[in-house]
Simulated scan of single mutants.
Amino acid sequence: MSHPASRVLGMLELLQTHHRLTGADLGARLGVDERTVRRYAGTLADLGIPVTANRGRYGGYRLSPGYKLPPLMLTDDEAVAVVLGLLAADQLGLSTEAPATGIALAKIERVLPRALAERLGAVRESLGFTLRPRQEGVARPATATLLALGAATRSRHRVSLTYRSWRGGVSLRQVDPYGLVFHAGRWYLTGHDHRRGEIRTFRLDRISAVESGTETFAVPEGFDAVGHVTRSLAGVPYTWEVEVLLETDLDQARRRIPPSVAELTETEDGVLLRCRANRLDGMAHMLAGLGWPFTVLRPDDLREAVGEYAKHLAEMATRHPAVVRLR
């Protein structure tokens, strides 16, 4: 709560929660002196919020009796959209290092009309997700980092990043931020890295400091931040370079194969799948599970892996069920 406006709102929140608070109490909770508390009370009064101040032993600050802020004016559809959005973000890990989803939900439900809050509470209690839950222990970026990069990306200002690589080395990077991407539970920044002279991808949780400069830049025409991040992650070095021609169309292939797994290109003969893999038996399983005819272009070892998997399936087909005895 470092910004003065945040402290003024914080004072209003405290006065709504407590019947009366002294200037010393408010100052201690807001991290300011009593003179500043008096100034905040004046600001609230200027906004039409009736804050009264009483002197003496039992004095202090309070809202005028009977005054309450009106309930948050959201329709049922709007309230459902906000609450479900917060729940989905929490499930996916779409957040920063500061845990704020639960607090935000509590604040929203507190100011909603009681009937609507109770109905939304019932939805929360009965809601289940088939989405893969967020990974516990995954590092989250600082809120200040995310906000600073968002502002610089929108204003097209170059930033200085203090960045830690996967090897642990720390370096200072001058980057033109082209876009922010949330992918597979992590936040990424993509942009032109002046140290490397090329477009690079950075994990936000490895950025310890951001400083926005005065130099501006232009984003290359037609640049796709999401596409660049998914391609760069799919291009991380692996043991095997794989190319397979799938006999299907591009729309069908995209429904079954996410961008993080492989790069898909439409050709006259079908869809060219390019990816990297550490284990070819896993690639054989995936290709067989797709259900489309395919031709392995490379490596030749993948043909052997597919053949071995076919033998395994044929062996499974010859097995006969044993007599099942129910208990």
Rank of each mutant, 00 (worst) to 15 (best):
L264M: 04
R206D: 00
Y238Q: 15
E247C: 12
W240L: 08
Y238R: 15
V123A: 11
T201K: 02
I108L: 14
S232Y: 03
R38C: 11
L131I: 06
R110V: 11
L63N: 01
A305Q: 01
P65I: 05
Y309L: 06
G59C: 07
G185V: 00
R124G: 11
A122K: 12
G137A: 07
G282P: 02
R186N: 05
T36H: 01
L146Y: 04
V80G: 06
M1K: 10
T52E: 13
G169E: 15
V271T: 05
A142P: 02
T96M: 09
R20L: 13
L94C: 09
S232R: 11
V82N: 09
A117G: 06
T201P: 01
V271L: 06
W240M: 04
P220T: 04
L302Q: 00
Q91G: 06
V242F: 03
T130C: 14
F182I: 04
P258V: 03
R57K: 09
G42Q: 12
R7Y: 04
I199Q: 05
D269R: 15
E118L: 15
Y309V: 03
H228P: 05
S126I: 12
I257D: 01
R186K: 09
L30D: 06
P70L: 08
N278G: 14
G227V: 00
R154Q: 14
E247R: 15
R173Y: 04
A322L: 10
P177G: 00
G179R: 02
E125C: 08
T143N: 10
E97M: 11
K107H: 15
S160C: 12
Y238V: 12
W240V: 04
S2M: 13
R319T: 05
D281P: 00
E136P: 09
V82W: 12
R20P: 03
A41G: 10
S212L: 07
P141I: 06
A24M: 14
A104D: 09
A317R: 11
R55T: 10
T130A: 15
G85C: 11
G23C: 06
P177W: 00
S208V: 03
V226E: 07
M286S: 13
L233M: 13
G197F: 03
A81L: 13
Q91C: 10
G27W: 02
T190G: 03
P177I: 00
A253M: 04
T295H: 12
V323P: 02
Y67K: 07
L92Q: 15
E125W: 08
H312T: 13
E198H: 01
M286V: 11
T318I: 07
R57G: 02
P70N: 07
V111H: 13
G179S: 01
T145F: 07
L15Q: 03
G10A: 06
R206E: 00
L264P: 03
Y40S: 05
G137T: 01
E125D: 14
G179Y: 04
S208I: 03
L105E: 09
P4G: 04
A53N: 10
A314T: 07
P220E: 00
F223P: 01
K107W: 14
F182L: 01
A115S: 15
R119V: 10
L84T: 12
T153Y: 07
M11N: 02
L44R: 03
L84P: 05
L189Y: 04
A104K: 09
S2R: 13
L116G: 06
L172M: 09
L9Q: 02
R20S: 09
M286E: 13
L180E: 04
E315P: 00
